[in-house]
Amino acid sequence: MSNRDIIVIGGSSGATAPLKAILGALPDTLAAAIFVVLHIPARSLGLLATVSAAAARLPVHPAEDGLAIAPGHIYLGVPDHHLILEDGRIRLGRGPRENMARPSIDPLFRSAAATYGPRVIGVILSGLLNDGAAGLDAVRRCGGVALVQDPADAIADEMPRSALAAVADGLTVPADRIGDVLADLVQEQAGPRLPVPPEIRLEVDIAAGERIDSGVLRRFADPVALSCPHCGGVLSEVRGARPLRFRCQVGHAYTAEAAAKAQEGAVDEAMRVALRIVGERAELVARMAVEARETGRNAVAEMYEARAAEYRDYTETLRRAVLDTFEPRGGGGEPEA
């Protein structure tokens, strides 16, 4: 029976410092391969140097399609590709973005769970929103171990808290202890292999770039009256998902929180456009009322005046709503990777 020899790590805002601490604490004899996805800009070049400096005792590689996996090596997700694990090698996927990101954490975790089952240790670090929570749930469903950075010492605690909500039995560990805990877990034998839920394999295929259509989507999701923030297509709710998640027929995937964040810009813009149009309508009708008064059409003038007052009420309601959008809000997302 194999040991726990596959470690997958995901994070975003505030994750670089704990990642450096983790990798710096690992021994050069570590008998496990490590895979890392952080939400990074599409043209980011600094992560490789940062991780290489922190993990001085272990070789670090940017992920390459077809690259063989070796224990004691660290593999980093690269911009604009999902990092996917197959048996003994890496695959880079150009499937649709998940939670506005590519690479996204969930595809890495799902592919590890589907391929290596109980040999996987999943680690969620500091970050905004909740990418990685569904992937960590997949790791546990396939028999793996779930570790989560203690939200109390995370710069951004949303991602760790969401992961713990999705995986109630996950281990909560302060960032400066995760490296030691991993070194111990790697020495343990993995548990028995569990059946892989078919929806996990389907979502791995989607991330890899396999074709998706309504027939594929209906195998694990049901259409709802929501549109995809990215392409405008119909969203379907993934059955039994933890956390609540959606996919469109193109394959774009969102947790409910990520979808709400993605919609914010469109909602704000729509309200500003409506404010301008209704305000202009009020001004036009008011001028028409003045003209009607000047030409002795009092009944028409009264009708226009009533309409202008009604439009001004609408304008004030919209103005208050637009101003509310500038109030400070909890949380926040990151730029689309």
Rank of each mutant, 00 (worst) to 15 (best):
A63L: 13
I178N: 09
N130R: 00
D87K: 04
A54P: 11
L217E: 03
G66F: 15
A308S: 10
A289H: 01
M1F: 11
A221G: 07
P243N: 06
R218Y: 11
L147A: 03
Y75T: 00
R110Q: 09
P195Y: 02
A68S: 03
E210R: 00
L48R: 11
E158M: 07
I206P: 11
A56D: 05
R161S: 13
L58A: 14
A183P: 14
L48C: 10
R307S: 14
H81D: 09
R312C: 13
A306N: 04
A63N: 13
G296R: 04
V148K: 00
L92N: 06
A282D: 07
E336V: 13
L85P: 13
E334L: 14
V285N: 01
Y116D: 13
R239L: 03
S44F: 15
F326H: 06
A308W: 00
I34D: 04
A306W: 04
I9P: 03
E316R: 11
G117S: 05
I105F: 08
I22P: 14
I212N: 02
A17S: 14
P71L: 03
E86W: 00
V139D: 07
A321W: 01
Y116N: 08
N298G: 09
P59K: 11
D180P: 04
C228T: 13
L108M: 05
L92V: 10
G66E: 09
R293T: 10
T50N: 07
A165F: 07
G24W: 06
A282P: 11
V123A: 02
E283D: 15
V285A: 00
R293C: 15
F109E: 07
D184C: 09
D106T: 12
L85C: 11
S162A: 05
D176G: 00
V145A: 08
M159F: 07
H61M: 05
R276I: 04
A175W: 02
E264I: 07
S2F: 05
L30K: 08
H81K: 09
A32W: 08
V300G: 02
V148W: 00
Y304F: 10
Y311Q: 15
M159D: 08
I121L: 08
I34N: 02
L125G: 10
S227V: 10
Y311C: 15
E316C: 15
P229F: 04
M1V: 14
P96A: 02
E327A: 09
E158P: 13
E316P: 13
S2Q: 12
D65A: 12
D150G: 08
A152L: 04
I206E: 02
R239E: 06
I9V: 02
S52A: 07
A241E: 02
S104C: 14
G88Y: 09
A55Y: 03
G240D: 11
L108F: 03
V250Q: 05
V51P: 10
A270S: 01
D28V: 14
A301T: 06
P174G: 08
K20V: 12
D169C: 09
I105Y: 03
L323W: 00
L323E: 03
D157L: 11
R281C: 10
P195S: 05
I212Q: 05
G11M: 00
I121W: 08
G170E: 07
A63V: 12
F109S: 12
V120H: 09
S2Y: 06
A134P: 15
A17I: 12
P41Y: 09
V181C: 04
H61Q: 06
